[in-house]
């Protein structure tokens, strides 16, 4: 994993985990803080901060000795969140080219064919 060192690294780790969940690379159990830290080459405290954030956002749960796992509704919630993000930026780019919502819808329907 390559980081943009100009931005907080724990936020990039958080994003990476969310994407791994949506891609179903992580289905239930998250890697341990220590293993992930080694894998991506950062301080474990930085990974721990990302994990605390994920838990606060209700995406994961954890218990001492039981590790960290993805919560039941997290997958669909995250998928929806990420799809919306992409659709939003897609529509914004087309708006900036001067297209109307009607024209955008027509384009999308053409893609479908």
């Amino acid at each position: 994993m390559q980081f943009d060192k100009n931005k907080p690294i724990y936020l990039q780790i958080k994003r990476e985990i969310k994407e791994r969940i949506v891609r179903k690379e992580i289905k239930k159990e998250l890697p341990t803080v220590r293993n992930l830290a080694k894998e991506v080459g950062v301080n474990p405290n930085t990974v721990a901060r990302a994990y605390r954030d994920l838990e606060r956002d209700n995406i994961t749960g954890s218990r001492v000795g039981k590790g960290t796992w993805v919560k039941d509704r997290a997958y669909s919630k995250l998928q929806k969140e990420m799809v919306e993000e992409i659709v939003d930026s897609f529509i914004q780019s087309l708006y900036s080219l001067g297209l109307t919502l009607k024209e955008i819808k027509e384009i999308v329907e053409e893609i479908d064919d």
Binding site: K7, P8, I9, N43
Partner: peptide, 25 residues
């Protein structure tokens, strides 16, 4: 990426001190 906290020294004094990610943002 090793540092969770970074302390900057200049002429024998601490000039910046904080969590590395907080300093980045």
């Amino acid at each position: 990426t090793l540092f969770d906290r970074t302390i900057f020294l200049l002429d024998g004094n601490i000039v910046i001190d904080g969590e590395s990610d907080d300093l980045r943002s």
